[in-house]
Measured scan of single mutants.
Amino acid sequence: HNLTITQGKLFFHYNPKLCLSEIHKMEEVSGTKGRQERNDIALKTNGDQASCENELLKFSYIRTSFDKILLRWEPYWPPDFRDLLGFMLFYKEAPYQNVTEFDGQDACGSNSWTVVDIDPPLRSNDPKSQNHPGWLMRGLKPWTQYAIFVKTLVTFSDERRTYGAKSDIIYVQTDATNPSVPLDPISVSNSSSQIILKWKPPSDPNGNITHYLVFWERQAEDSELFELDYCLKGLKLPSRTWSPPFESEDSQKHNQSEYEDSAGECCSCPKTDSQILKELEESSFRKTFEDYLHNVVFVPRKTSSGTGAEDPRPSRKRRSLGDVGNVTVAVPTVAAFPNTSSTSVPTSPEEHRPFEKVVNKESLVISGLRHFTGYRIELQACNQDTPEERCSVAAYVSARTMPEAKADDIVGPVTHEIFENNVVHLMWQEPKEPNGLIVLYEVSYRRYGDEELHLCVSRKHFALERGCRLRGLSPGNYSVRIRATSLAGNGSWTEPTYFYVTDYLDVPSNIA
């Protein structure tokens, strides 16, 4: 807008934040220059609390790290170098490059900038070799853009010569660093050979998330399962459950009422301010606690030095998902009996873990797994792929695949051998790939016309006998059925096997 004052003059007093240069501009645009008398524009009460600059400061050096910015700028000295009290560095987070010096300023003089007072450097006698002032900004957020400017702080001049310097606002972004852990990993099994893994992005990506790394490792069953005799009275049979499938998407929606109208769909109840505040506090606490764990609990591995020492970490090797089922080394339970199943799973520490690289999504279907087997899954978020990966501390989750139908069934015939004193040795093959492992066998036998009897055969007993022995049988026709019990439950009964026990007292003698 054009402003013209045809008559009258300007009068400025007691404006401590208004620089004289701005008042002189007002004289020019209003056409009143030359009308004012000496005392109409006070030299001592206008701009006496402001830094009124008329020179431009330029930054000469900028260096960044993930949490620091090192700045240096060209030296500046007023005509009387004693008038320079120091520099004021202003900075704040700036997602967009549209910041002005006066953003967030209120009537009390406060604003949204963080201000650092910096002492002037030592003055050199040689004007050509003056030290460049600077400042190291610490405690910054990774991968965050900051708006920065600097200006001088000078003393009051009796001659009211307006001098000083100020830089333009520059924008500097800190470097990326390792992201925080992925949030809320959930693993479920939808079949006997697959596990579905879902997660949420890290709360602090500290860069642009480029991919996720998912490692999985087959877990050995508890050692007590191999040692305890679950045929003993009072000892509860062990059981394991597989990871249940995901709930429906509708039930997972946030901010939804727990109660549904019987007449149909209901609208979600909005969260109160107290609920939102509580969630923010919980989120802040979780982030602080995660940072504490990362800094205190997890110790970084030592990389190899120039002395030739090897990095103890196993090298990563990509495998196809079809090879995942046989990740671990199978060892027989008892070496003397080769027909026992290889369900003991000690994992070799030198073995390469299978892994998958996930790009542009937060889910993965891990296939080719062994049925009813526990897996430990390790999830890392990465925001750099080359020249070397920059990934987060791992988040861990466990899951067990679903049982395989008929995996616990005894394959092959049940054979028998009759000894003296009416002892019958029953023999059968253990299931080759049971659900988890076989903890015991149930032997059901009966003599024709009598009630059915049951015998429990422990895992250890089966390994020693290759089956079991029935003792003290009365003469007669017998039928026997056997079924295995694994961590997933009972298998199917075998087809009945028949044998006849004679009275050993009636056996004919070869003595003449």
Score class of each variant (00 low, 15 high):
residue 346 P to V: 14
residue 450 D to L: 06
residue 434 P to K: 04
residue 371 H to E: 05
residue 368 G to V: 09
residue 212 Y to L: 02
residue 510 N to Q: 06
residue 263 A to M: 10
residue 288 T to R: 08
residue 422 N to S: 07
residue 365 V to R: 04
residue 286 R to C: 06
residue 337 F to E: 12
residue 287 K to D: 13
residue 430 E to V: 11
residue 404 E to Q: 14
residue 337 F to N: 09
residue 284 S to C: 06
residue 261 D to H: 08
residue 308 G to A: 11
residue 213 L to T: 14
residue 463 A to I: 08
residue 384 Q to L: 04
residue 210 T to L: 08
residue 334 V to L: 09
residue 458 S to H: 02
residue 247 E to L: 11
residue 409 D to F: 10
residue 228 L to M: 06
residue 509 S to F: 10
residue 453 L to N: 15
residue 313 R to P: 14
residue 229 D to M: 11
residue 302 K to M: 15
residue 320 S to Y: 11
residue 377 I to L: 13
residue 320 S to M: 06
residue 395 A to N: 07
residue 232 L to I: 15
residue 318 R to Q: 04
residue 493 W to A: 00
residue 302 K to G: 08
residue 438 I to K: 01
residue 362 E to A: 11
residue 301 R to W: 03
residue 231 C to S: 01
residue 308 G to C: 14
residue 482 I to K: 01
residue 297 V to Q: 11
residue 308 G to E: 06
residue 252 Q to R: 11
residue 304 S to A: 08
residue 487 L to N: 13
residue 249 E to T: 15
residue 254 H to T: 11
residue 287 K to Q: 06
residue 437 L to A: 10
residue 375 Y to I: 04
residue 493 W to E: 01
residue 371 H to A: 07
residue 366 I to D: 01
residue 466 R to I: 07
residue 222 D to A: 10
residue 494 T to L: 02
residue 231 C to P: 02
residue 461 H to Q: 11
residue 455 L to W: 05
residue 289 F to D: 09
residue 209 I to V: 12
residue 377 I to Q: 02
residue 341 S to C: 08
residue 238 P to G: 06
residue 262 S to R: 15
residue 218 R to V: 04
residue 237 L to S: 09
residue 460 K to T: 13
residue 311 D to T: 11
residue 506 D to G: 14
residue 325 G to N: 14
residue 333 T to D: 12
residue 395 A to E: 12
residue 288 T to F: 04
residue 455 L to S: 08
residue 389 E to G: 04
residue 436 G to D: 14
residue 402 M to V: 11
residue 352 H to T: 06
residue 307 T to L: 07
residue 372 F to L: 06
residue 434 P to N: 08
residue 291 D to M: 10
residue 343 T to Q: 10
residue 241 T to V: 15
residue 247 E to N: 13
residue 395 A to M: 07
residue 483 R to W: 01
residue 448 Y to R: 15
residue 441 Y to V: 09
residue 371 H to D: 15
residue 264 G to A: 15
residue 335 A to K: 10
residue 384 Q to K: 08
residue 440 L to P: 00
residue 424 V to A: 03
residue 496 P to A: 15
residue 205 P to R: 07
residue 290 E to F: 15
residue 312 P to D: 13
residue 331 V to W: 03
residue 244 P to M: 14
residue 337 F to P: 06
residue 373 T to P: 00
residue 395 A to R: 11
residue 388 E to A: 10
residue 231 C to E: 01
residue 286 R to A: 14
residue 398 S to N: 08
residue 315 S to N: 14
residue 264 G to Q: 12
residue 458 S to W: 03
residue 409 D to L: 11
residue 327 V to A: 07
residue 415 T to V: 06
residue 288 T to D: 06
residue 210 T to I: 09
residue 226 F to C: 06
residue 365 V to I: 15
residue 251 S to K: 14
residue 389 E to L: 09
residue 271 K to S: 04
residue 432 K to S: 13
residue 252 Q to A: 11
residue 392 S to M: 01
residue 363 S to W: 10
residue 280 L to R: 12
residue 379 L to F: 06
residue 313 R to F: 14
residue 257 S to I: 13
residue 210 T to N: 15
residue 454 H to R: 04
residue 489 G to T: 09
residue 343 T to V: 10
residue 399 A to W: 07
residue 485 T to L: 14
residue 407 A to K: 12
residue 307 T to Q: 06
residue 274 S to T: 06
residue 229 D to V: 06
residue 366 I to Q: 02
residue 433 E to M: 04
residue 204 D to H: 01
residue 497 T to M: 03
residue 240 R to V: 08
residue 480 V to T: 12
residue 280 L to V: 14
residue 483 R to E: 00
residue 461 H to F: 13
residue 406 K to Y: 05
residue 453 L to R: 02
residue 383 N to F: 02
residue 214 V to G: 15
residue 388 E to D: 03
residue 277 L to D: 06
residue 354 P to I: 11
residue 302 K to L: 09
residue 488 A to V: 10
residue 322 G to Q: 04
residue 296 V to A: 13
residue 315 S to R: 09
residue 475 P to D: 04
residue 435 N to R: 00
residue 368 G to R: 10
residue 220 A to E: 13
residue 326 N to P: 14
residue 323 D to H: 07
residue 248 S to A: 12
residue 319 R to K: 11
residue 295 N to R: 12
residue 396 Y to H: 12
residue 365 V to L: 08
residue 261 D to G: 04
residue 286 R to M: 15
residue 462 F to W: 10
residue 381 A to W: 00
residue 223 S to P: 13
residue 497 T to C: 15
residue 451 E to L: 15
residue 480 V to M: 10
residue 235 L to T: 05
residue 351 E to A: 04
residue 241 T to R: 06
residue 303 T to R: 08
residue 284 S to F: 04
residue 223 S to I: 05
residue 449 G to Q: 12
residue 360 N to G: 07
residue 312 P to N: 11
residue 331 V to N: 12
residue 400 R to Q: 10
residue 468 C to A: 08
residue 233 K to L: 08
residue 480 V to A: 10
residue 419 F to S: 05
residue 501 V to L: 06
residue 356 E to S: 15
residue 471 R to V: 05
residue 296 V to P: 06
residue 332 P to F: 06
residue 381 A to V: 03
residue 333 T to S: 04
residue 283 S to V: 10
residue 290 E to T: 07
residue 211 H to S: 14
residue 210 T to W: 10
residue 429 Q to S: 15
residue 510 N to W: 11
residue 401 T to D: 00
residue 482 I to N: 00
residue 342 S to M: 07
residue 421 N to C: 07
residue 474 S to P: 07
residue 484 A to H: 00
residue 505 L to C: 04
residue 274 S to Y: 14
residue 213 L to V: 15
residue 445 Y to Q: 04
residue 273 D to L: 14
residue 314 P to Y: 12
residue 301 R to H: 04
residue 363 S to R: 04
residue 398 S to V: 14
residue 434 P to D: 00
residue 387 P to R: 05
residue 418 I to F: 07
residue 499 F to V: 10
residue 458 S to D: 05
residue 259 Y to P: 10
residue 239 S to Y: 14
residue 346 P to L: 07
residue 334 V to P: 11
residue 376 R to L: 15
residue 295 N to Y: 02
residue 463 A to Q: 08
residue 467 G to S: 09
residue 478 Y to W: 09
residue 475 P to L: 05
residue 420 E to Y: 15
residue 470 L to K: 00
residue 465 E to M: 08
residue 257 S to D: 12
residue 481 R to I: 06
residue 218 R to A: 07
residue 499 F to S: 01
residue 350 E to W: 11
residue 444 S to R: 03
residue 413 P to T: 10
residue 420 E to Q: 14
residue 488 A to Q: 15
residue 399 A to G: 11
residue 303 T to E: 14
residue 480 V to C: 15
residue 306 G to F: 10
residue 507 V to Q: 15
residue 303 T to N: 15
residue 221 E to S: 13
residue 219 Q to S: 08
residue 472 G to V: 11
residue 408 D to Y: 01
residue 441 Y to M: 01
residue 285 F to L: 07
residue 500 Y to K: 12
residue 421 N to L: 07
residue 455 L to E: 13
residue 234 G to P: 05
residue 244 P to Q: 14
residue 306 G to P: 09
residue 278 K to P: 13
residue 317 K to A: 05
residue 364 L to P: 00
residue 280 L to A: 15
residue 357 K to H: 04
residue 229 D to G: 15
residue 457 V to M: 14
residue 369 L to D: 01
residue 498 Y to F: 11
residue 414 V to N: 01
residue 244 P to T: 07
residue 467 G to P: 01
residue 483 R to L: 03
residue 343 T to G: 12
residue 216 W to P: 07
residue 317 K to V: 04
residue 456 C to S: 02
residue 209 I to R: 13
residue 284 S to W: 12
residue 203 S to V: 05
residue 402 M to Y: 06
residue 235 L to D: 10
residue 315 S to L: 11
residue 448 Y to A: 08
residue 263 A to H: 07
residue 223 S to M: 10
residue 336 A to K: 09
residue 208 N to R: 12
residue 349 P to D: 14
residue 286 R to L: 07
residue 505 L to H: 03
residue 403 P to A: 12
residue 398 S to R: 05
residue 357 K to M: 08
residue 247 E to R: 13
residue 318 R to D: 10
residue 335 A to E: 12
residue 235 L to P: 07
residue 288 T to M: 09
residue 301 R to E: 09
residue 255 N to S: 07
residue 489 G to C: 03
residue 379 L to Y: 05
residue 273 D to F: 15
residue 325 G to Q: 15
residue 344 S to Q: 04
residue 239 S to W: 11
residue 290 E to Q: 06
residue 407 A to R: 11
residue 329 V to Y: 05
residue 443 V to N: 00
residue 466 R to W: 10
residue 250 D to W: 07
residue 242 W to G: 12
residue 238 P to R: 11
residue 243 S to F: 13
residue 259 Y to T: 12
residue 221 E to Q: 09
residue 265 E to M: 03
residue 298 F to Q: 13
residue 226 F to W: 03
residue 356 E to N: 14
residue 320 S to N: 06
residue 203 S to R: 07
residue 326 N to T: 03
residue 383 N to K: 02
residue 502 T to K: 08
residue 301 R to P: 05
residue 445 Y to I: 01
residue 206 N to W: 14
residue 400 R to C: 05
residue 362 E to L: 07
residue 502 T to R: 10
residue 377 I to P: 00
residue 496 P to R: 11
residue 325 G to C: 05
residue 405 A to R: 15
residue 287 K to W: 15
residue 259 Y to F: 12
residue 369 L to Y: 00
residue 466 R to A: 07
residue 353 R to T: 04
residue 392 S to N: 00
residue 281 E to L: 05
residue 365 V to A: 06
residue 461 H to M: 10
residue 291 D to N: 15
residue 245 P to Q: 13
residue 416 H to P: 05
residue 351 E to Y: 13
residue 203 S to Q: 09
residue 345 V to P: 10
residue 223 S to F: 03
residue 373 T to V: 04
residue 366 I to Y: 01
residue 259 Y to H: 05
residue 242 W to E: 06
residue 218 R to S: 12
residue 271 K to D: 14
residue 358 V to R: 08
residue 427 M to F: 11
residue 492 S to V: 13
residue 265 E to P: 07
residue 270 P to G: 01
residue 429 Q to Y: 13
residue 214 V to H: 00
residue 480 V to G: 03
residue 311 D to P: 04
residue 393 V to P: 03
residue 344 S to K: 10
residue 369 L to I: 02
residue 505 L to T: 14
residue 240 R to A: 00
residue 491 G to F: 02
residue 490 N to R: 14
residue 286 R to S: 10
residue 316 R to V: 15
residue 494 T to P: 01
residue 297 V to M: 07
residue 369 L to K: 00
residue 470 L to Y: 01
residue 235 L to W: 14
residue 335 A to W: 11
residue 231 C to R: 01
residue 397 V to L: 06
residue 488 A to Y: 10
residue 245 P to F: 09
residue 440 L to W: 15
